[in-house]
């Protein structure tokens, strides 16, 4: 199971990085959200770590239960990722209005 989840997170990261590197603005935004989801899974998995008891848990609480704290962290991180994603979408909308394109190569005012 550990191996499967690790491989799954790795695959998600790979897909996300591939999408981010594409020349389409919307695809790269989707890649961004895929990467942040992969990292959120990683965080949840850090809490489901078996073998070492979470340091301040009671003994009985550690048996067969996941640590709750990473899940709280992930909730916060999801909210932040959503804020960032909506900002990215807003900027892409502005590019769409201003340049009439979704192609990153045509958004080129910063190229001198």
């Amino acid at each position: 199971m550990e191996l499967l989840i690790a491989a799954g997170i790795g695959l998600m990261m790979a897909v996300g990085v591939y999408q981010v590197l594409r020349r389409n603005l919307i695809r790269s935004a989707i890649g961004l959200i895929i990467i942040s989801n992969a990292i959120h899974l990683l965080l949840i998995y850090a809490g489901a770590y078996r073998g070492v008891v979470a340091p301040y848990a009671f003994e009985w609480a550690a048996e067969g239960r996941s640590d709750a704290l990473p899940q709280v962290l992930v909730l916060t991180a999801i909210v932040i990722a959503m804020g960032g994603f909506s900002l990215v979408l807003g900027m892409i909308y502005i590019f769409g209005v201003r340049y009439r394109t979704g192609d990153m190569d045509k958004v080129d005012q910063l190229k001198y």
Partner: peptide, 26 residues
């Protein structure tokens, strides 16, 4: 807007890297 887009992508990756570091430490 373009500069902000560029900065935001790079910083977002930096933030994700920091989040992975948090996960590793935790």
């Amino acid at each position: 807007t373009e500069a902000a887009y560029k900065y935001f992508y790079i910083s977002q990756f930096a933030a994700m890297i920091l989040l992975i570091a948090c996960g590793c430490l935790y």
